[in-house]
Design a protein around this nucleic acid. Structure first.
Lengths: 341, 341
DNA sequence: CTGAAAGCGCTTACAG
DNA sequence: CTGAAAGCGCTTACAG
């Protein structure tokens, strides 16, 4: 009755490891947490006992005792479909999960519709169910995230709207400079009537890339009137391209704020029998799989999305540990020249 | 000292709610869990106290006490990039999260490379950190998942390889019948040399759809020799299409096991100046955004991915509650006719 | 319907 | 370096 048979074997506890190893629970806890010194002898017997029992610490008990959940919330204030269809998110998340791999933290997916963060996500975060949060794709309307970041360790993927987040921690690229570089490419290859398919006007990435496009044109005295906004999806890129073409049939270059939108734009161009880059040169942004999966390989501004994800985790971890870390980490971009411009 | 100022306000506890409401902790617990009866009076004062203190139960304490984690692991034995770039996963996950919305469970993302489920995921699951798991995209090599499902509530998205999972719970469609229906469309519109771009041979969806294609051709005495396998990505679809064309320039119809691969195939066809569906008709599989985002709208076999996600959650919840539920839930498919066939 | 009490499995000062 | 003990915030029989 005291050893073998049991209906449903309960997982072994610290207690059991201790008794098997012939030490106190404190000691077992110490070796599990690699905290203060433990004698080689105790260490050996405990390690062996853990091995034999296949012991894994109970997360709930641990959390309760030390007030850490070891869980990170990945908050995505975005339509599920967009989150999953944009390779940009894939790479960021890949970077995050890859970097977290070596830690004991787990990632909780909190998919929240934009603008109406569900009470569930809210409650979850406020209920102390996570030690920190990572927010990707931040819209200006996501008010609740603003104050959250003041009382809770949060790192943003992409600079949040500054008015709301004066002291936010984030990793990003210099979107304006990057967009300027991309637009400059169009100028350099001789384009004279350059449009832009911009991102959403309620997201810094959308705004700043537009600024960069304007800056490049302004520097050479070109008009910056050809602008249509999209929402980073291929469909919106197609729609925008149609509108631009209707407005200015003679345009010969377009700086597009994301590769996915650029794909949509290229599709429309071909439908209208415009060659790329012959008639219209296209420069995209991101340099992810979308840039090379269409019929014409995109010249694009490359940002290190995966590395950004890794850096996000690095910064959040530093914050969780109370270590110093920069508020904003800006990564480099570069122009990748392929076929479209 | 006893009320207002505090360095870092700790979240309110059950205890505090109880004292404010003037009842015992037991009573508060009862109203929080809507368990046994509580007098209207007690209910009112507790509800009010909860409201005033903005009380949210501590998840760790709760888990420890009742041995439930209220967490579900979403295990994805797939490359991160594929997981994120296939709309099929997006819809499944959307369905899952949507259905879970009304529950108190949270979803933990466990991205594991195929064939080498990290020890982390493994440890996480065995460590009792989740009450159940959902596994999408199961390859035949994922051995560790096999025995896990025997001792742990798991529901699979898509039938797992049967040899390993004789008693698995899953939701799926009848892939063979669905593929047969898709292939039949090609026959019906007069195609005589029909190929297939199949899915991976280590996944049931890949195998069964191939079976359906064979069946349709066999029924009318056509040859079923034109088959090339892809891995569900657009790039693999393009590669396969090239190979098929090289092998049989005269083919006039292709049943493709996923819309994403079909997109890749269409791209190649156009590059080789073959019109779709004029020269070659294409029938895809899935009916997700990929079917309508390319240059030619795909005729495709539609499966209710999002509903499948919802059903997965429903089944898992039933299992968690110890309620009876079917082992396999097979959903309907239908043919959606657009431009490609 | 309600409260006192034990217990869930850990961590962490505190002594030694 | 090590152990006894208190405590983390809940839930759940058990009495009443």
């Amino acid at each position: 009755m005291d050893t073998e048979v049991q209906e449903r074997r309960l997982p072994p506890t610290l207690e059991e490891v201790a008794s098997l190893a012939g030490v106190s629970r404190s000691t077992v806890s110490r070796v599990v947490n690699a905290s203060s010194k433990v004698s080689p002898k105790a260490l050996a017997s405990v390690t062996q006992a853990i091995e034999r029992l296949n012991y894994v610490p109970n997360r709930a008990a641990r959390s309760l005792a030390n007030r850490q959940t070891m869980a990170i919330a990945l908050v995505v204030p975005e339509e599920t479909s967009r989150f999953f269809s944009d390779p940009y998110f894939a790479e960021i998340v890949h970077g995050i999960t890859h970097a977290m791999e070596s830690s004991d933290y787990v990632l909780n997916l909190q998919l929240a519709s934009p603008f109406v963060p569900t009470s569930k996500t809210n409650k979850y975060l406020r209920g102390g169910n996570a030690d920190g949060a990572i927010v990707v794709s931040h819209h200006s309307g996501d008010a609740f995230l603003a104050d959250l970041a003041d009382s809770f360790p949060v790192v943003f993927g992409g600079r949040p709207m500054t008015s709301q987040q004066p002291n936010a921690y984030y990793v990003d690229v210099d979107n304006a400079a990057a967009a300027q570089m991309g637009t400059q490419r169009l100028i350099d290859i001789g384009r004279r009537r350059i449009a832009t398919i911009a991102g959403p006007a309620d997201m810094p990435a959308g705004i700043d890339r537009t600024t960069g496009w304007r800056r490049a044109l302004g520097a050479v005295g070109m008009a910056d009137d050809l602008i249509v906004h999209g929402d980073f999806t291929p469909a919106s890129g197609a729609r925008a391209m149609r509108e631009l073409l209707d407005r200015e049939p003679g345009l010969d270059g377009v700086f597009v704020a994301s590769d996915l939108m650029a794909m949509g734009a290229v599709t429309v161009l071909r439908q209208r029998n415009k060659s790329v880059p012959g008639d219209v040169a296209i420069v995209g942004f991101d340099d992810n799989s979308a840039a090379v999966s269409g019929e014409v390989q995109l010249t694009t501004v490359s940002q290190p999305s995966m590395e950004m994800g890794e850096k996000i985790w690095e910064m959040l971890l530093a914050r969780l540990r109370g270590e110093p870390t920069e508020r904003a980490y800006i990564m480099d971009t570069r122009l990748v020249i392929r076929a479209s411009a």
